[in-house]
Protein backbone atom coordinates (compact mmCIF):
# COMPACT_ATOMS: atom_id res chain seq x y z
CA UNK A 1 0.00 0.00 0.00
CA UNK A 2 1.40 3.38 -0.92
CA UNK A 3 1.27 6.33 1.43
CA UNK A 4 -1.52 8.78 0.87
CA UNK A 5 -3.14 11.78 2.37
CA UNK A 6 -6.57 11.64 3.81
CA UNK A 7 -9.29 14.19 4.21
CA UNK A 8 -12.82 13.99 5.42
CA UNK A 9 -15.04 15.92 3.05
CA UNK A 10 -17.59 18.02 4.90
CA UNK A 11 -20.00 18.32 1.98
CA UNK A 12 -20.66 17.05 -1.51
CA UNK A 13 -19.74 20.39 -3.00
CA UNK A 14 -16.41 20.42 -1.25
CA UNK A 15 -15.74 16.78 -2.10
CA UNK A 16 -16.33 17.57 -5.76
CA UNK A 17 -14.03 20.52 -5.46
CA UNK A 18 -11.32 18.41 -3.86
CA UNK A 19 -11.38 15.46 -6.22
CA UNK A 20 -9.53 15.51 -9.49
CA UNK A 21 -9.80 11.97 -10.70
CA UNK A 22 -11.99 8.94 -10.95
CA UNK A 23 -10.46 5.70 -9.77
CA UNK A 24 -10.22 4.31 -13.33
CA UNK A 25 -8.49 7.48 -14.43
CA UNK A 26 -6.12 7.32 -11.48
CA UNK A 27 -5.12 3.84 -12.54
CA UNK A 28 -4.32 4.81 -16.10
CA UNK A 29 -3.14 8.39 -16.23
CA UNK A 30 -2.82 9.89 -12.78
CA UNK A 31 -0.36 7.35 -11.49
CA UNK A 32 2.44 7.73 -9.00
CA UNK A 33 0.44 9.05 -6.10
CA UNK A 34 -0.92 12.17 -7.73
CA UNK A 35 -4.63 11.38 -7.89
CA UNK A 36 -7.21 12.72 -5.51
CA UNK A 37 -10.06 10.29 -5.42
CA UNK A 38 -13.19 9.90 -3.34
CA UNK A 39 -13.74 7.03 -0.99
CA UNK A 40 -17.03 5.66 0.26
CA UNK A 41 -17.03 2.31 2.07
CA UNK A 42 -13.52 1.75 0.84
CA UNK A 43 -13.72 -2.01 0.45
CA UNK A 44 -12.92 -2.01 -3.24
CA UNK A 45 -10.62 0.99 -3.06
CA UNK A 46 -8.44 -0.56 -0.36
CA UNK A 47 -8.31 -3.77 -2.31
CA UNK A 48 -6.95 -1.92 -5.36
CA UNK A 49 -4.44 -0.01 -3.26
CA UNK A 50 -3.28 -3.15 -1.47
CA UNK A 51 -2.73 -4.86 -4.81
CA UNK A 52 -0.58 -1.91 -5.81
CA UNK A 53 -2.62 -1.20 -8.92
CA UNK A 54 -4.03 2.05 -7.57
CA UNK A 55 -1.68 4.55 -5.95
CA UNK A 56 -3.75 7.50 -4.88
CA UNK A 57 -2.23 10.70 -3.57
CA UNK A 58 -5.21 11.57 -1.46
CA UNK A 59 -8.42 9.92 -0.37
CA UNK A 60 -11.42 12.14 0.05
CA UNK A 61 -13.68 10.40 2.48
CA UNK A 62 -17.41 10.83 1.96
CA UNK A 63 -18.40 9.15 5.20
CA UNK A 64 -18.88 12.30 7.17
CA UNK A 65 -21.16 14.06 4.74
CA UNK A 66 -24.59 14.05 6.31
CA UNK A 67 -27.64 12.73 4.48
CA UNK A 68 -25.99 10.37 2.05
CA UNK A 69 -27.07 7.27 3.92
CA UNK A 70 -30.83 7.80 3.75
CA UNK A 71 -33.24 5.30 2.30
CA UNK A 72 -36.88 6.11 1.60
CA UNK A 73 -39.80 4.48 -0.06
CA UNK A 74 -43.23 5.62 -1.04
CA UNK A 75 -45.82 4.20 -3.34
CA UNK A 76 -45.74 7.10 -5.71
CA UNK A 77 -42.03 7.71 -6.09
CA UNK A 78 -40.67 4.28 -5.45
CA UNK A 79 -37.39 3.59 -3.71
CA UNK A 80 -34.63 6.12 -3.26
CA UNK A 81 -31.37 5.74 -1.45
CA UNK A 82 -28.17 7.64 -1.03
CA UNK A 83 -24.75 6.41 -2.12
CA UNK A 84 -23.63 5.69 1.45
CA UNK A 85 -26.47 3.27 2.08
CA UNK A 86 -24.79 -0.08 2.65
CA UNK A 87 -25.75 -3.41 1.11
CA UNK A 88 -26.78 -4.50 4.61
CA UNK A 89 -29.11 -1.49 4.82
CA UNK A 90 -30.91 -2.75 1.71
CA UNK A 91 -30.96 -6.28 3.08
CA UNK A 92 -32.48 -5.05 6.33
CA UNK A 93 -35.01 -2.66 4.85
CA UNK A 94 -38.56 -4.04 5.19
CA UNK A 95 -39.62 -1.99 2.15
CA UNK A 96 -36.94 -3.48 -0.04
CA UNK A 97 -37.83 -6.95 1.11
CA UNK A 98 -41.53 -6.36 0.52
CA UNK A 99 -41.54 -4.43 -2.73
CA UNK A 100 -38.24 -5.11 -4.46
CA UNK A 101 -37.72 -8.80 -4.11
CA UNK A 102 -35.07 -9.11 -6.81
CA UNK A 103 -33.02 -6.36 -5.15
CA UNK A 104 -33.47 -8.00 -1.77
CA UNK A 105 -32.27 -11.34 -3.12
CA UNK A 106 -29.29 -9.67 -4.76
CA UNK A 107 -28.41 -7.88 -1.52
CA UNK A 108 -28.59 -11.01 0.62
CA UNK A 109 -26.42 -12.95 -1.78
CA UNK A 110 -23.70 -10.36 -2.19
CA UNK A 111 -20.22 -10.78 -0.71
CA UNK A 112 -19.98 -11.58 3.01
CA UNK A 113 -22.03 -10.28 5.94
CA UNK A 114 -19.01 -8.23 7.01
CA UNK A 115 -18.56 -6.68 3.59
CA UNK A 116 -22.29 -6.01 3.33
CA UNK A 117 -22.00 -4.00 6.53
CA UNK A 118 -19.20 -1.92 5.06
CA UNK A 119 -19.75 -1.67 1.33
CA UNK A 120 -21.85 1.23 0.16
CA UNK A 121 -24.15 1.26 -2.84
CA UNK A 122 -22.29 4.15 -4.43
CA UNK A 123 -19.08 2.19 -4.14
CA UNK A 124 -20.79 -0.98 -5.30
CA UNK A 125 -21.82 0.63 -8.57
CA UNK A 126 -18.40 2.21 -9.04
CA UNK A 127 -16.32 -0.86 -8.13
CA UNK A 128 -13.82 -2.22 -10.58
CA UNK A 129 -14.03 -5.66 -12.19
CA UNK A 130 -12.63 -8.73 -10.49
CA UNK A 131 -10.80 -10.05 -13.56
CA UNK A 132 -7.73 -11.71 -12.07
CA UNK A 133 -5.45 -10.19 -14.66
CA UNK A 134 -6.80 -6.72 -14.04
CA UNK A 135 -6.32 -7.25 -10.29
CA UNK A 136 -2.75 -8.43 -10.68
CA UNK A 137 0.02 -5.86 -10.69
CA UNK A 138 1.99 -8.26 -12.83
CA UNK A 139 -0.38 -7.93 -15.80
CA UNK A 140 -0.59 -4.58 -17.53
CA UNK A 141 -3.86 -5.20 -19.30
CA UNK A 142 -6.00 -3.01 -21.55
CA UNK A 143 -8.13 -1.89 -18.67
CA UNK A 144 -5.03 -0.42 -17.07
CA UNK A 145 -3.87 1.24 -20.26
CA UNK A 146 -1.93 -1.69 -21.65
CA UNK A 147 -2.29 -3.25 -25.06
CA UNK A 148 -2.83 -6.90 -24.17
CA UNK A 149 -5.90 -8.66 -22.90
CA UNK A 150 -4.52 -11.60 -20.94
CA UNK A 151 -7.97 -13.08 -20.36
CA UNK A 152 -8.79 -13.50 -24.01
CA UNK A 153 -5.76 -15.69 -24.47
CA UNK A 154 -5.52 -17.07 -20.96
CA UNK A 155 -7.64 -18.29 -18.08
CA UNK A 156 -11.15 -17.05 -18.69
CA UNK A 157 -13.51 -19.48 -16.96
CA UNK A 158 -15.23 -16.70 -15.04
CA UNK A 159 -15.20 -14.14 -17.81
CA UNK A 160 -17.91 -12.81 -20.07
CA UNK A 161 -19.74 -14.53 -22.89
CA UNK A 162 -21.06 -11.33 -24.47
CA UNK A 163 -19.18 -8.24 -25.66
CA UNK A 164 -15.90 -10.08 -25.40
CA UNK A 165 -14.05 -8.26 -28.17
CA UNK A 166 -12.01 -5.72 -26.29
CA UNK A 167 -12.06 -6.85 -22.67
CA UNK A 168 -14.10 -9.83 -21.53
CA UNK A 169 -14.24 -8.88 -17.85
CA UNK A 170 -17.61 -9.08 -16.17
CA UNK A 171 -19.12 -6.28 -14.18
CA UNK A 172 -18.67 -7.23 -10.54
CA UNK A 173 -21.81 -5.68 -9.10
CA UNK A 174 -24.52 -8.27 -8.69
CA UNK A 175 -26.75 -5.61 -7.18
CA UNK A 176 -26.53 -3.70 -10.44
CA UNK A 177 -28.13 -6.66 -12.18
CA UNK A 178 -31.23 -6.18 -10.07
CA UNK A 179 -31.15 -2.38 -10.19
CA UNK A 180 -31.01 -2.34 -13.99
CA UNK A 181 -33.87 -4.83 -14.11
CA UNK A 182 -35.95 -2.41 -12.04
CA UNK A 183 -35.02 0.33 -14.49
CA UNK A 184 -33.12 2.19 -11.79
CA UNK A 185 -31.54 5.58 -12.22
CA UNK A 186 -28.61 7.33 -10.67
CA UNK A 187 -28.17 10.96 -9.86
CA UNK A 188 -24.67 12.21 -10.50
CA UNK A 189 -23.55 15.48 -8.99
CA UNK A 190 -20.68 17.42 -10.48
CA UNK A 191 -19.39 20.97 -10.57
CA UNK A 192 -22.07 21.87 -13.09
CA UNK A 193 -24.86 20.45 -11.01
CA UNK A 194 -26.84 17.27 -11.08
CA UNK A 195 -27.78 14.92 -13.88
CA UNK A 196 -29.96 11.86 -13.73
CA UNK A 197 -29.36 8.93 -16.02
CA UNK A 198 -30.74 5.46 -16.32
CA UNK A 199 -28.45 2.81 -14.89
CA UNK A 200 -28.65 1.01 -18.21
CA UNK A 201 -26.90 4.07 -19.66
CA UNK A 202 -24.58 4.51 -16.71
CA UNK A 203 -22.51 1.43 -17.42
CA UNK A 204 -20.28 1.51 -20.45
CA UNK A 205 -19.16 -1.51 -22.44
CA UNK A 206 -15.47 -2.05 -23.04
CA UNK A 207 -15.96 -1.30 -26.72
CA UNK A 208 -16.86 2.26 -25.76
CA UNK A 209 -14.32 2.73 -23.01
CA UNK A 210 -12.10 -0.10 -21.96
CA UNK A 211 -10.50 1.66 -19.03
CA UNK A 212 -13.67 2.69 -17.24
CA UNK A 213 -16.95 0.87 -16.60
CA UNK A 214 -19.23 3.88 -16.32
CA UNK A 215 -19.89 7.41 -17.51
CA UNK A 216 -19.08 9.27 -14.29
CA UNK A 217 -16.52 11.97 -14.90
CA UNK A 218 -13.60 12.90 -12.75
CA UNK A 219 -15.58 15.37 -10.71
CA UNK A 220 -18.85 13.50 -10.40
CA UNK A 221 -20.18 11.67 -7.42
CA UNK A 222 -23.22 9.41 -7.26
CA UNK A 223 -25.57 11.22 -4.93
CA UNK A 224 -28.78 9.26 -5.29
CA UNK A 225 -30.11 5.98 -6.61
CA UNK A 226 -33.76 5.69 -7.59
CA UNK A 227 -36.04 2.82 -8.48
CA UNK A 228 -39.48 3.43 -9.96
CA UNK A 229 -42.50 2.29 -7.95
CA UNK A 230 -43.82 -1.22 -8.31
CA UNK A 231 -47.45 -2.28 -8.31
CA UNK A 232 -49.67 -5.29 -7.76
CA UNK A 233 -48.76 -6.75 -11.11
CA UNK A 234 -45.00 -6.53 -10.64
CA UNK A 235 -43.28 -9.85 -10.28
CA UNK A 236 -39.57 -10.03 -9.78
CA UNK A 237 -36.84 -12.38 -8.79
CA UNK A 238 -33.11 -12.73 -8.81
CA UNK A 239 -30.87 -15.78 -8.78
CA UNK A 240 -27.14 -15.80 -8.36
CA UNK A 241 -25.00 -18.81 -9.02
CA UNK A 242 -21.53 -18.75 -7.55
CA UNK A 243 -19.24 -21.71 -7.46
CA UNK A 244 -20.00 -21.67 -3.74
CA UNK A 245 -23.22 -20.82 -1.99
CA UNK A 246 -21.31 -19.03 0.74
CA UNK A 247 -19.24 -16.00 -0.05
CA UNK A 248 -18.46 -16.00 -3.73
CA UNK A 249 -18.52 -13.92 -6.84
CA UNK A 250 -21.19 -14.66 -9.37
CA UNK A 251 -20.57 -17.10 -12.19
CA UNK A 252 -23.89 -15.99 -13.50
CA UNK A 253 -26.77 -14.04 -12.05
CA UNK A 254 -30.13 -13.11 -13.49
CA UNK A 255 -32.68 -10.51 -12.46
CA UNK A 256 -36.15 -10.50 -13.91
CA UNK A 257 -38.85 -7.86 -13.41
CA UNK A 258 -42.18 -8.71 -15.02
CA UNK A 259 -45.30 -6.64 -15.30
CA UNK A 260 -48.13 -9.14 -15.22
CA UNK A 261 -51.76 -8.77 -16.06
CA UNK A 262 -53.18 -11.90 -14.62
CA UNK A 263 -51.31 -14.67 -16.40
CA UNK A 264 -50.25 -12.47 -19.25
CA UNK A 265 -46.92 -10.75 -19.30
CA UNK A 266 -47.31 -7.13 -20.30
CA UNK A 267 -43.77 -6.03 -19.88
CA UNK A 268 -40.52 -7.70 -18.98
CA UNK A 269 -37.01 -6.69 -18.10
CA UNK A 270 -34.38 -9.36 -18.05
CA UNK A 271 -30.81 -8.63 -17.01
CA UNK A 272 -27.78 -10.89 -16.90
CA UNK A 273 -24.94 -10.29 -14.45
CA UNK A 274 -21.47 -11.78 -14.88
CA UNK A 275 -22.22 -12.29 -18.57
CA UNK A 276 -20.66 -9.14 -19.98
CA UNK A 277 -18.57 -6.13 -18.97
CA UNK A 278 -21.86 -4.43 -18.09
CA UNK A 279 -25.12 -5.64 -16.56
CA UNK A 280 -26.67 -6.95 -19.75
CA UNK A 281 -30.29 -6.41 -20.77
CA UNK A 282 -31.68 -9.25 -22.90
CA UNK A 283 -34.30 -7.39 -24.93
CA UNK A 284 -34.83 -10.16 -27.42
CA UNK A 285 -35.78 -12.52 -24.64
CA UNK A 286 -38.03 -9.88 -23.12
CA UNK A 287 -39.87 -9.66 -26.43
CA UNK A 288 -40.55 -13.39 -26.34
CA UNK A 289 -42.33 -13.05 -23.01
CA UNK A 290 -44.26 -9.89 -23.77
CA UNK A 291 -47.90 -10.34 -24.50
CA UNK A 292 -47.86 -14.01 -23.67
CA UNK A 293 -49.04 -16.19 -20.85
CA UNK A 294 -45.90 -17.45 -19.21
CA UNK A 295 -45.51 -21.15 -19.54
CA UNK A 296 -42.42 -23.24 -19.22
CA UNK A 297 -42.35 -23.56 -22.99
CA UNK A 298 -42.35 -19.81 -23.52
CA UNK A 299 -39.65 -19.37 -20.93
CA UNK A 300 -37.44 -21.96 -22.59
CA UNK A 301 -37.88 -20.06 -25.86
CA UNK A 302 -36.95 -16.82 -24.14
CA UNK A 303 -33.93 -18.46 -22.55
CA UNK A 304 -32.72 -19.64 -25.97
CA UNK A 305 -33.23 -16.20 -27.38
CA UNK A 306 -31.38 -14.62 -24.49
CA UNK A 307 -28.24 -16.52 -25.33
CA UNK A 308 -28.25 -15.74 -29.01
CA UNK A 309 -25.16 -13.88 -29.99
CA UNK A 310 -23.13 -15.23 -27.12
CA UNK A 311 -19.43 -15.53 -27.94
CA UNK A 312 -18.01 -17.69 -25.17
CA UNK A 313 -14.27 -17.93 -24.71
CA UNK A 314 -12.08 -21.01 -24.48
CA UNK A 315 -13.01 -21.92 -20.90
CA UNK A 316 -16.46 -20.49 -20.23
CA UNK A 317 -18.76 -22.22 -22.67
CA UNK A 318 -20.60 -23.72 -19.72
CA UNK A 319 -22.03 -20.29 -18.99
CA UNK A 320 -24.30 -20.45 -22.01
CA UNK A 321 -26.09 -23.43 -20.59
CA UNK A 322 -25.94 -21.99 -17.08
CA UNK A 323 -27.63 -18.75 -18.06
CA UNK A 324 -30.42 -20.58 -19.89
CA UNK A 325 -31.18 -22.53 -16.74
CA UNK A 326 -30.87 -19.51 -14.49
CA UNK A 327 -33.18 -17.43 -16.67
CA UNK A 328 -35.76 -20.18 -16.78
CA UNK A 329 -35.66 -20.61 -13.02
CA UNK A 330 -35.70 -16.90 -12.27
CA UNK A 331 -38.78 -16.27 -14.40
CA UNK A 332 -40.62 -19.28 -13.00
CA UNK A 333 -39.73 -18.22 -9.46
CA UNK A 334 -40.86 -14.64 -10.17
CA UNK A 335 -44.31 -15.68 -11.31
CA UNK A 336 -44.45 -18.08 -8.38
Amino acid sequence: MNRFEYIKAPSIAEAIDMMDSTVPEAMVTKTGGSAKVVKAGGTDLLDLIKEGILEPGRLIDLKNIPGLDKLSYDKKNGLQFGPMVTIADLENSPEVKKHYRALYEAATHAATPQIRNMATMGGNLMQRPRCWYFRSSGHHCRKKGGTTCFAQIGQNQFHSIFLTNVCPCVHPSSLATALVAYDGKVELTGPEGKRVIALSEFFTPSEVNVTCENVATNQEIITNIMLPPVNEGTRAFYIKQGQRESYDWSMGDVAVVLQMDGKKCQDARIVFGAAAPIPLRREAAEEVLKGKAITEKVVVQAAKKALEGATPLAHNGYKVHLFQTLLKRTVMEAIG
Binding site: Y6, G42, T43, L46, D47, L59, D61, K63, A88, T112, P113, Q114, I115, N117, M118
Partner: peptide, 13 residues
Protein backbone atom coordinates in the same frame (compact mmCIF):
# COMPACT_ATOMS: atom_id res chain seq x y z
CA UNK B 1 -21.92 -3.29 17.06
CA UNK B 2 -21.79 -4.50 13.45
CA UNK B 3 -19.28 -7.11 12.27
CA UNK B 4 -16.85 -5.63 9.75
CA UNK B 5 -13.47 -6.56 8.30
CA UNK B 6 -10.79 -4.58 10.11
CA UNK B 7 -8.32 -5.37 7.32
CA UNK B 8 -10.45 -3.42 4.86
CA UNK B 9 -11.14 -0.49 7.17
CA UNK B 10 -8.82 2.45 7.63
CA UNK B 11 -8.20 3.12 11.30
CA UNK B 12 -8.55 6.83 10.67
CA UNK B 13 -12.05 6.17 9.38
Amino acid sequence: GKPVNSCMTLAID
